[in-house]
Design a protein around this nucleic acid. Structure first.
Length: 557
RNA sequence: UGGGGUGUCGCCAAGCUGGUAAGGCACCGGAUUCUGGUUCCGGCAUCCGGGGGUUCGAAUCCUCCCACCCCAGCCA
């Protein structure tokens, strides 16, 4: 069957392949392809397809090609092919030398089209777009034959050659397949094979003024590459008869198409077209805005590729339309980062603490563990001094029952440092707390009391004079609704608080010199990753995801 | 009677050669813990869109019905 080492859940595609292998189809070969159109950036939905196609190939000792489906020059650009390659590589998949472009096959597509004409299976049609729509019929009524369907082979050949040579204006003629205008499947109502389109192609330039349609180009590309299992999304189910028709008529290697449900994620939009709108309308800063579900956005946000792959394995594969809870993606991110991110202390919303019984100019260095999940990550020194910052949320003047943190008269532990007791909350004239005056117990250095005394909370902190000031960008879901389309337009469901910039954040000095993309766990807060906007004078962090917060849950009750 | 699909726990998803509902996320307990994190233990569908039928026995077979999704680009 397959490698027992790789134990991902079964799904209908694997079952089909297992059966094919058992029957000896394709000489035991398994060959897939990931076929993006270079007209936008890849998103989390594509990741599902990438993991599927490359994953299947790996599992069955086969191969997966990267093929750019570039048959519509008006929408495609080199910028997109570059970003796509970068993203697939980032996820960790390799297509080796098998990087193909549908445009590489333009000559072959043309020759095969000639064959269809010669066999009397295609004709040149003079109907314009509007007329063709009328002749096509409707969902319930059959279409009408084109008046040009009966042209002779010779005339079709002549006309098609002249189409190619640029003798006719854009849109004035098409090459069409002769199938069945009364088919219940509209795709079979004499579909267009080639259209005239004078647009400069990102790779072939102006060499062609006719371009093949997806249905024709895709199946032929699959065939030429010897793709055994051509996996695509559900909306192409209706196209499968046409996919099969072309390959049958052309009598070339017959790849098989199988369809699976695309990924939908709660609080997220997964549509290249709509994501492009978010960018164009300025709701986000670009395709790589950390709030975007694009792979470039997730990367900048700090989502590790391993987490994305893990997520894609966890969600499974089926044919039922579904919307996966975004919490599942966040789980995969936390799960990976918990095991790999170095821990550090940082205060996002600072409250000054003065240790009144600590000498003015003294300082201490405490040992802190870099990652409790991984002893090999070692330890580091964290500076301590008289003036510190703690998180504002960690102090309450009048604490409710279940609040274990700092309060007047209460003793808590400063992580890896000392027990401190709060004696006074200093306020300004407005009544806002500006500073806490506390005393520490020198005997508790390192975090444990020799007398066995316990505290109910451990707080993170940072030494004021040693801390690095940072900007933190805190992200929430981009949409306020689980389904961004709820109510008709996603624009009205955009979350106005999806980004909060905090400028007064203080991080322990060990993060100095971190490079862009480096991710840390700020203890008790979440995972944060260095943004490329960081400069020597100012480090910027993106909040990748928070830690689970049961205190927040208790509060909300 | 256009055509093509899909309906199993709040969200994904196994199961499909009939034998009496995996797992994950979420959620709810409880234990451990110098992160109210992690980890650990326990709970969480007598029921598989609905009705009928076949059978000793059906989520799995038959049948009727219902709901939802996709298709009328010279886009992919």
């Amino acid at each position: 069957m397959s490698d027992p080492e790789i134990k991902t859940p079964s799904n209908f595609i694997k079952q089909i392949i297992d059966e094919d292998l058992k029957q000896g189809k394709n000489e035991g070969r398994v060959h897939t392809r990931f076929p993006p159109e270079p007209n936008g950036y890849l998103h989390i939905g594509h990741a599902k397809s990438i993991c599927l196609n490359f994953g299947i190939a790996a599992r069955y000792n086969g191969a997966c090609n990267l093929r750019f489906d570039d048959t519509n020059p008006e929408k495609e650009e080199q910028e997109y092919v570059d970003s796509i390659k970068k993203d697939v590589r980032w996820l960790g998949f390799s297509w080796d030398e098998r990087e193909y472009f549908a445009s590489d096959y333009f000559d072959k597509f043309y020759e095969f089209a000639i064959k269809l004409i010669e066999d009397g299976k295609a004709f040149v049609c003079d109907l314009d777009a509007g007329q063709m729509r009328e002749y096509r019929g409707t969902l319930k009524e059959p279409g009408t034959e084109s008046p040009f369907k009966n042209r002779s082979v010779a005339e079709n050949l002549d006309l098609f050659t002249r189409m190619k040579n640029g003798e006719f204006p854009d849109g004035s003629k098409t090459l069409r397949a002769k199938i069945d205008m009364s088919s219940g499947n509209i795709n079979m109502r004499d579909p267009v094979i080639y259209r005239i389109q004078r647009a400069s192609h990102h790779r072939t330039g102006d060499a062609w003024c006719i371009y093949p349609m997806y249905d024709y180009a895709h199946c032929v590309s699959d065939s030429l590459e010897g793709i055994t299992h051509s996996l695509c999304t559900l909306e192409f189910e209706d196209h499968r008869p046409l996919y099969d028709w072309y390959l049958d008529q052309l009598e070339i290697y017959h790849s098989r198409q199988y369809e699976f449900a695309r990924l939908n994620l709660s609080y997220t939009m997964v549509s290249k077209r709509k994501l492009l709108l978010l960018v164009k309308e300025g709701h986000v800063s670009g395709w790589d805005d950390p709030r975007m579900p694009t792979l470039s956005g997730l990367r900048r946000r700090g989502y590790p590729p391993e987490a994305i792959i893990d997520f894609c394995e966890r969600i499974g594969l089926a044919k039922a339309d579904s919307t996966v809870d975004i919490a599942m993606l966040e789980f995969s991110v936390r799960d990976f980062l918990n095991r790999h991110a170095l821990r550090v202390m940082g205060v996002i919303n600072p409250l000054k603490v003065v240790i009144t019984n600590y000498p003015e100019n003294a300082m201490d260095e405490l040992d802190a563990i870099n990652n409790p999940e991984n002893p090999d990550a070692g330890t580091r020194k964290v500076p301590f001094s008289r003036e510190l910052y703690i998180e504002r949320d960690d102090f309450m003047e009048e604490p409710p029952k279940k609040f274990f943190r700092l309060a007047p008269g209460r003793e808590v532990r400063l992580r890896y440092a000392f027990f401190i007791t709060c004696n006074e909350a200093v306020k300004d004239e407005m009544g806002n707390i500006t500073e806490l005056r506390c005393t520490y117990d020198p005997e508790t250095r390192g975090g444990d009391a020799p007398d066995g005394r316990k505290v109910k909370a451990t707080l993170h902190w940072v030494s004021a004079q040693h801390a690095v000031k940072a900007e933190i960008r805190r992200y929430e879901h981009l949409f306020t609704k689980e389904n961004p389309e709820e109510g008709g337009d996603f624009q009205s469901n955009i979350n106005p608080d999806s980004l909060t910039v905090l400028n007064e954040c203080f991080i322990e000095p060990s993060i100095k010199g971190s490079s862009s993309g480096q991710t840390y766990q700020f203890e008790r807060l979440g995972y944060f990753c260095v943004d490329p906007d960081s400069a020597a004078e100012k480090i910027v962090f993106n909040r990748t995801v928070t830690l689970k917060d049961t205190w927040k849950k208790i509060q909300q009750k």
